[in-house]
Design a protein around this nucleic acid. Structure first.
Lengths: 155, 155
DNA sequence: GCCACTAAGTTCGCTAGTTGAACTGACATT
DNA sequence: AATGTCAGTTCAACTAGCGAACTTAGTGGC
């Protein structure tokens, strides 16, 4: 049977999971952020099975994360460019980066790579905060609630 | 053949992907954050196949995200509690929440749920910022670099 | 004692998804 | 004509996820 789909669940995490839960997909996005655009670039950078890469790129285009653009004719050749939606996904990867760096290196104190500012070389440490207060989130004080304005005019 | 594992790749995103790329896993964590602890609670809340839930809970325990604790003897019954590592994972879910809310509701302006402060009821909008400056990340100015201090004493 | 019920799983037959390797098609280069 | 490049497609073997039924160890009712 088909894998249970979450893409129509009424929860943002579920819908994001539906996308991210496709094996390889976050890594394809990571490569897109590091400037890769062509099929062969993604394939050789990740050593991902070509058939899998095909389905992932198709899905990411269908979701509006990437744009498939012809960069030459005869023979037709296409490259994949980040859209605004795809670029916005960087925040999710950054949060994964931070959490992975903090918790997924049990043996060594540090992962071998860090994020840096391109100009200054300063190490960048992503954190997730509340947009209004700028303070880190505290799980214990957060709950899930209904949207304030789901319908336009309620009696 | 077996799915390619990313859990020993030298990249924080890859290692995080290995975990959350397991179908259902982020949703199991979401339920853990909303206070669920028991097998039946997770199962009925998500309607996840029981065999899948078993493997997910086992993995999350092995990764140190959850703790399996007996809450009674005869018959032995266990519940699953968030560890510090699991609690830290909230940031990743929050980033997914924000991105999903912003981009995964093409038809309607808003998802039906929001995050709120438990006391004040104020809507919380997670953002990912640089810890030092407090400013949102700009993909174009970020690059991946080697860690400053991989070994303790370098000539 | 016998039956129903609960919690936390396990077992099973089926099907969808992943893997590695080989292959295709359209063109360029030697 | 042979080789190379790029962007895929095809294929057989295998693995993971699916729903449903079953198990184990106990409790409560009659």
């Amino acid at each position: 049977m088909r894998r249970t789909r979450f893409d129509d669940w009424p929860c943002p995490i579920a819908r994001a999971t539906d996308l991210i839960g496709d094996w390889w997909t976050p890594l394809v996005m990571r490569e897109a952020f590091s400037g890769r655009r062509r099929f062969e670039e993604f394939q050789s950078a990740l050593d991902v099975p070509r058939a899998v890469l095909t389905t992932r790129l198709k899905r990411l285009c269908a979701e509006g994360m990437l744009d498939r653009v012809a960069y030459q004719q005869s023979p037709a050749r296409y490259e994949y460019r980040l859209t605004d939606k795809g670029r916005a996904f960087w925040d999710v990867l950054a949060a994964m980066w931070r959490w992975g760096s903090d918790w997924m290196w049990p043996d060594h104190p540090q992962p071998p790579v860090v994020l840096k500012d391109r100009q200054t070389g300063r190490v960048i440490r992503p954190v997730v905060v509340d947009e209004e207060t700028g303070e880190r989130l505290d799980v214990r004080t957060i709950r899930v609630g209904r949207s304030p304005a789901t319908t336009s005019a309620a009696g």
